[in-house]
Amino acid sequence: MIPIEWFITLGFFLFAIGIAGVLIRRNIIMVLLSIELILNSANITFVAYSYQHQSVTGQMMVFFILTMAAAEVALGLALVIALYRVRSVMNVDEINILKW
């Protein structure tokens, strides 16, 4: 029997790694990849608490997060491709046209 806190801690570690990845990487594709890590940590936490409470509501949430992740990846990568065509940059520091 595995205590539920282990799963929660694992999800939190993944979340912290994802946050650090969003903050420290300069490539925009890596920022999107780190967001995937954050969404996965949310999924682990949802499934763990759903297991503890003997309910499947948390697993429904996992489905909707998955849908949103797929949509986000498709749109994000399309934006990256469009941006690369127009300006040939992939560095998040150089994407500053919208800055005043």
Binding site: I19, A20, V22, L23, I24, R25, R26, N27, M30, D93
Partner: peptide, 10 residues
């Protein structure tokens, strides 16, 4: 490949 403020990120 890392941002220059990576210690802050970590």
């Amino acid at each position: 490949y890392l941002h220059r403020q990576y210690p802050v990120g970590i």
